[in-house]
């Protein structure tokens, strides 16, 4: 079992001269993609990204060491606020019925992987696994940053990352097998 560790949040030490305006422009694609992973809907992802930018802009006097992580954290909190307020968010924690969280680590990736299969497999993951693997492998956040963004212990983030990768490999392998049988 990986050791849990609480990561301190300290927004009081400025070390970057980047303004929030620059950070928003530079990270807009990344934020939108993260919003897509959370909402799994393009229209709602746009709304979420825009609301995040507005909320972040209201807090633009905040002194922040890591704008990018702060923006992602803000987006995640905005998403959670929306979930608490709106009954129309339904988190599909069950995920794909064929996915086993403790799937085999040995599932090899198919030789050719279609982008659509990757998206489908990703969206089939339960939210808490989907967002960790996205933040790590697509957005290059370190585990410490992911733990801060999601407000969870670093051990939990690491465990979820391992499980998510395993589940993705398993699903991509299943999709490839099905395609071979059809052809």
């Amino acid at each position: 079992m990986l050791k849990n560790e609480v990561i301190p949040i300290n927004f009081d030490r400025p070390s970057e001269r980047t303004s929030l305006s620059d950070a928003l422009q530079d990270n807009l694609n990344d934020l939108y993609r993260f919003a897509l992973r959370l909402s799994r809907n393009a229209d709602e992802a746009q709304e979420l990204t825009q609301e995040t930018a507005a909320r972040a802009w209201e807090r633009r006097d905040t002194i922040v060491r890591n704008w990018r992580a702060w923006l992602f954290q803000t987006l995640y909190h905005t998403f959670l606020s929306g979930k608490r307020r709106s009954k129309r968010w339904r988190e599909d924690e069950a995920g794909d019925p064929e996915m086993a969280e403790s799937g085999s680590c040995a599932d090899p990736l198919p030789a050719l992987v279609a982008a659509e299969d990757v998206r489908r497999a990703l969206e089939s993951l339960p939210e808490h696994l989907r967002i960790v693997v996205w933040l790590s492998d697509a957005e290059d956040f370190r585990l410490r940053e992911i733990a801060t963004i999601l407000d969870c212990p670093i051990g939990t983030a690491a465990s979820r990352l391992a499980r998510a990768r395993s589940a993705l490999r398993q699903m991509l392998s299943v999709y490839a097998t099905r395609k071979m049988r059809k052809s």
Partner: peptide, 26 residues
């Protein structure tokens, strides 16, 4: 797997209209 996820990420861009709205705001 990491490379495939990055490829997916690179294929997704924020819509132009969204970028304009946020630029206008800031």
């Amino acid at each position: 797997l990491r490379a495939e996820l990055k490829k997916l990420a690179n294929s997704e861009q924020a819509p132009v209209a969204l970028r304009r709205r946020i630029s206008g705001m800031v």
